[in-house]
Design a protein around this nucleic acid. Structure first.
Lengths: 188, 188
DNA sequence: TTTCTCATGTAACGCGTTACATGATTAC
DNA sequence: GTAATCATGTAACGCGTTACATGAGAAA
């Protein structure tokens, strides 16, 4: 509902170009946007129109000129009032779960393999989140509180994916036990 | 990436109308779609064109005729092959976290109130998920394994939101301690 | 020689949402 | 009398994605 504020947020660190912001968003494993030009450059045009940012153009030789955007006082105020806007609960899209909802048509082994594939997908994602958590972005003069908040955001993501991994392991274990139970019952 | 398969999945239980499916999707707290006519009816048209479902029209007096869709053998096969398609990791959109990223501009009390508002939003969502987990949808002849899977899906959602609540409580507690620490330091 | 990085942008498309439209019956 | 339920659908719009387009310099 607003990549606009993400862009504005990054600009509150320091003046940047659209390209800089694109890279920051692309790096992030947890922001719910893929960094795509279309949105970022249009957001910057809008921010400029609203006078939340000012723009200066640095000509370069042998390269496209850099359009550097700087947050204005008006922009700082807009960011502040957005930050305190009504929080929404997380919206998680587990498309795999809709697969699981109709997975009873599978035999025990195929189901287990499917769960293993999910385990790997989640594990891989967690790996990248951990990597990102370790490397701090170049963000100037953070207060201890801001460092703490960012640290806790990372921990939140990690804990969430770890929970998912443990859940998968439990389901696989218990399905295996169920299967063995049934086999025992039929062989009796 | 496909409400089409959700519709097909529900039709694998029993023949239904678009309206029935709409209600089932609307009830669900965890499916990542709001039940909207536009998509559901268009999906049904597509499914019919693909011959994954067949259609019969029941005329009624004093009410619109019911278009009842029934899954075909071809549809069952399509559902099966989708179920085993490559799992994707969960995609969680915590828009509140982008607010928190720039929340260092707030004073301690405002930040705490913001976190409390988030706590309430998450708590409310959890409440509705619990309610939905308790009332089983009218789904015919489930195998024990299918019941188990659905049960575990619900538990997964509950655990995820509980994790979030505990995280918020921890952050609030630790921020409070930080604040007190600072006050003590300045008053000394 | 090909690929990557810097740096700007546009076009086309798809998915999802809200809101609109109709119209009878039943419940409060 | 007003609202909800049953039951079908359409229109308009916004957000996001992929892909396209350009063009120089540096690195492999």
């Amino acid at each position: 509902m607003s990549i606009k504020y993400v862009v504005l947020g990054y600009l509150s660190w320091r003046p940047m170009t659209g390209y800089d912001i694109k890279k920051l968003i692309a790096e992030s494993e947890t922001l719910p946007w893929t960094a795509n030009n279309n949105q970022i450059y249009r957001a910057l045009v809008e921010l400029h129109k609203d006078e939340w940012v000012s723009k200066t153009i640095e000509e370069q030789v042998g390269a496209p000129s850099r359009h550097v955007y700087t947050i204005t006082e008006k922009g700082v105020q807009a960011l502040k009032s957005w930050v305190v806007s009504e929080p929404e609960p997380p919206q998680t899209k587990k498309s795999f779960f809709t697969q699981l909802m109709w997975a009873d048509c599978l035999d025990a082994q195929t189901l287990d393999e499917l769960l293993e594939a999910y385990l790997n997908a989640v594990g891989e994602k967690l790996f990248f989140i951990r990597v990102q958590a370790d490397e701090k972005p170049n963000m100037p003069e953070r207060t201890p509180r801001e460092s703490y908040l960012w640290e806790m955001l990372h921990r939140n993501w990690i804990a969430q994916y770890e929970l998912e991994l443990n859940w998968i392991r439990q389901v696989r274990r218990e399905l295996l036990e169920m299967g063995n139970g049934r086999q025992k019952a039929t062989s009796r």
